[in-house]
């Protein structure tokens, strides 16, 4: 077991819940994460291949919602904050360390391939499901949204259903 101590989960959950509540009260919306990735993807495509982006409905719909700049989006600012906040937390708890985290029984290549594939699926799924664990599941639960809670159950249900097949990635035996 690692020696680094983490905050009590219920206390952390309470703080996170209060933060979410304050966010909803101030801004009328919850937390999120994958939306920032979407903004960045749109921004990249629009600047690299503007003609192509103008042809595609996905980019056009997004650009219509963000007339000034695709990066001028609430979630982009929030995620920049997340990176800063997590870095500060790692700093005060002495957890800053450039490592590839994996169990000893798999190779670095396997872990990297897994992370890449997992990220790809999650990024894709979050677009289809209109939000990820933060935006759909957590924030959806706070406002008791049927859509958010359904997505949450699908995420966790799906993960449990597939967990057995990928056990070798996580359980050293």
């Amino acid at each position: 077991m690692e020696k680094t101590t983490y905050m009590n989960p219920y206390l952390a959950g309470f703080f996170l819940g209060i933060l979410l509540l304050v966010t909803i009260f101030i801004t009328g919306r919850g937390l999120g994460a994958s939306g920032a990735v979407k903004s960045a993807v749109v921004a990249t495509t629009v600047s690299v291949a503007p003609a192509h982006a103008g042809d595609s409905r996905f980019y056009r719909e997004y650009m219509d919602e963000h007339p000034e700049s695709p990066l001028k989006n609430w979630l982009v600012f929030e995620v920049v904050g997340v990176v800063i906040g997590a870095f500060l937390s790692g700093l005060v708890s002495n957890r800053l360390n450039l490592t590839l985290e994996k169990i000893p029984t798999i190779t670095n290549k396997v872990r990297i391939a897994g992370a890449l594939t997992g990220g790809l699926l999650f990024g894709f799924g979050a677009q289809l499901g209109r939000g990820c664990t933060s935006g759909s599941a957590l924030s959806g639960m706070a406002v008791l949204s049927t859509g958010g809670i359904l997505t949450m159950m699908a995420i966790f249900g799906g993960a449990y259903a597939f967990a057995y097949f990928f056990r070798k990635l996580w359980l050293p035996r």
Binding site: G123, S136, W170
Partner: peptide
């Protein structure tokens, strides 16, 4: 979308946030 995210979760070990 949720099930695909769940699959991504167990393969990649993270969610976006």
């Amino acid at each position: 979308g949720g099930v695909i995210m769940g699959l991504g979760f167990v393969i990649g070990g993270y969610c976006p946030g």
